[in-house]
């Protein structure tokens, strides 16, 4: 299926958000996530299944004013 991850299309078979993050190499990184604009807390990533067309945001700390 095709997802949009951080604004870019991505072909994946990852069944869950947790599996997707592992596939992308974020398993051990401190990130926060949203699916289709809604926050998904870390403890719910494993049970959050993904569907074609879903938009995933993966964010990290950054400088800000």
């Amino acid at each position: 299926m095709t997802l949009t991850v951080n604004g870019r299309p991505l072909e994946t078979d990852a069944p869950s958000l947790e599996a997707l993050l592992a596939e992308l190499g974020y398993a051990d990184r401190k990130v926060a996530t949203a699916v289709n604009g809604t926050f998904v807390r870390a403890t719910l990533r494993a049970e959050t299944s993904l569907a074609p067309g879903d938009q995933i945001d993966v964010v990290v700390p950054m400088q800000g004013g």
Binding site: Y26, V60, Q63
Partner: peptide, 22 residues
Amino acid sequence: VTLSLRRETAGGRESAVLVSLI
């Protein structure tokens, strides 16, 4: 100190440096 969050890019090096600095 104020911080923000942004989509992950460039392997996260910049973010990691910032986090340890803070």
